[in-house]
């Protein structure tokens, strides 16, 4: 399979994504400017600070070019900050925060709380066999609303600061988009990336 997956490399842990993709035998490309997008079959939007990435997307000219590529059918996988970039609605963000607003979900930035509320959990992910997926949540967004067009592939239960105990979606899929609020790139488990790659291959 001749597949090239780009990884947005403006800020964040893009190297970790590249390492996972390489382990799967997929060619990768660091995307820092619009020219890096040519010929990529999919794009990973990594974890990092969504406000910083949003500014760098604009100054690099990638905001418009990635949005164009996505509207023309580019596959995308967003993790944590990347999920925020894909979400239709962002709560508790900055008013000038840019994103692609393509997946019909509403996410709350840092919805689980500050770093001390960051956590690990075992998840059952629909479409992934074998042992549970170990998920690392770092100042992660919380998915507050999901439209019916969006498939929820995994959920986590969590005791929030306001003492509410809720089960919230953490892996969402819609058309050519995949998003998760945690960091599959940090654990050495390649299965979520494999899911993304399979999605691309099934339509290629």
């Amino acid at each position: 399979m001749a597949l090239t997956v780009g990884v947005l490399a403006l800020q964040g842990d893009f190297q970790e994504h590249i390492a996972v993709l390489s382990e799967l035998g997929v060619s990768t490309r660091e995307v820092r400017s619009p020219k890096d997008l040519s010929g990529v079959d999919g794009l990973i939007l990594p974890g990092g600070e969504s406000t910083t990435m949003s500014m760098l997307l604009e100054s690099s000219g990638l905001l418009l070019e990635v949005a164009k590529a996505l509207s023309e059918g580019l596959f995308a996988f967003g993790t944590c900050a990347g999920m925020i970039l894909l979400a239709r609605e962002v709560l508790d963000g900055r008013s000038d925060q840019n994103g692609f607003a393509l997946m019909d979900i509403a996410v709350r930035r840092n919805g689980f709380g500050r770093q001390i509320k960051s956590f690990e959990a075992d998840l059952v992910v629909s479409g992934i066999d074998g042992p549970p997926v170990r998920a690392v949540f770092i100042r992660a967004p919380v998915v507050e609303k999901v439209a019916k067009e969006v498939a929820i592939l995994a959920e986590v239960s969590y005791s929030f600061d306001d003492d509410s105990h809720r089960v919230v979606p953490v892996v969402c899929a819609q058309d050519r988009l995949l998003a998760c609020s945690f960091h599959p790139e940090l654990t050495g488990d390649t299965r979520l990336h494999q899911l993304f790659v399979s999605k691309i291959l099934s339509e290629k």
Binding site: A9, Q15, G48, T52, E120, S157, Y158, S159, H183, L186
Partner: peptide
């Protein structure tokens, strides 16, 4: 239902935030 046990303050969670700050 809290079948899963969420783990806080692990080395991976602590180092994870540093990973997210990379390139910044």
């Amino acid at each position: 239902m809290d079948a899963q046990s969420n783990e806080f303050g692990t080395a991976r969670v602590k180092r994870g935030l540093a990973e997210m700050l990379r390139g910044g």
